[in-house]
Amino acid sequence: MSRFFSGLRDGVGFDILLVGAALLFLLALAGAPLVYNVLMSFQQVDMFTLGALFRPFVGVDNYVAVVQQPEFWLVTRNTLVFVFGSMAGQFVLGFALALFFAQNFPGASTIRGLFLVSWVMPGLVVGGIWSFILAGDYGVLNVILKALGIIDANVFWKSDPNFSIWAVIIANIWLGLAFNMLLLSVGLAAISRDLYEAAELDGANAFQRFWTITMPMMRPTIGAVLSLGLIGTLQQFDLFPALTEGGPANTSNVAGYWSWQLSFQLYDFAKGATVSVMMFLLVLVASVVYVRSTRHEVRG
């Protein structure tokens, strides 16, 4: 016991305790479910074996079955459209806003702070609000677009197969915009004003300063924002039940939501697990890119 307390004082032992607690937490709540999920994707899971850990091993049968599902390619395509559409929208608008608020006009930081509202809001609430905005017959977006003369007839954003995925993308861009802007703002603020002044004296115009100073200096931040954006978009769930439930006819269904449907609506846990393992591999690639991009920081 006295050794334990001396461990508290000199840091030896106590530090191991602290690290151990965190590690245990990670293993129990992230590591074990992950392994269990991967294991399940190689097993035959039905209502009778649901409680067992060791079930009949089926090799890659689940993977083959998932790929052979009629909606697989549609969901894959939707997932790609959703991920790249959301990320592009979040990043481009977020970067534009970050640059705008970096101009330091009066009230810039206050207004920038207000944008965080979208980040604080639960996804289900955001989905609910956008559900009203995007409503085909009474939605405010249609009213605006009609008043501007952009459309003649109402667009049924959520129920038209051509637009349903875009309805979720629009809501998701709004949801992730503040997070992107915030991270990019921090990156911009970290670039010393001296560099811009030196570049200006060296003869660079605003456009050249952006491409030769801002962009290269922002590389680590951009890498982080895009990687986190990819992860955040892949795990986006709340907006789907609130807006389209993946419909109509899976035209707005994506891998994450599909995996949930397979597991918890159809109780086909093996296929649900298989889809999520496929997604996990994608996120793993993104994480490697993220870690590598932060390792190559060139500040200072």
Binding site: D194, E197, A198, E200, L201, D202, A204
Partner: peptide, 27 residues
């Protein structure tokens, strides 16, 4: 400033951290 044709040495040096010495010189 870019049309004044003057050069400035800053207290912080303001070297471009993402460029080599040669790239800094030839910027």
């Amino acid at each position: 400033p870019r049309h004044r044709d003057i050069a400035m040495v800053f207290q912080s040096y303001a070297l471009y951290p993402h460029m080599t010495v040669e790239e800094n010189l030839t910027y």
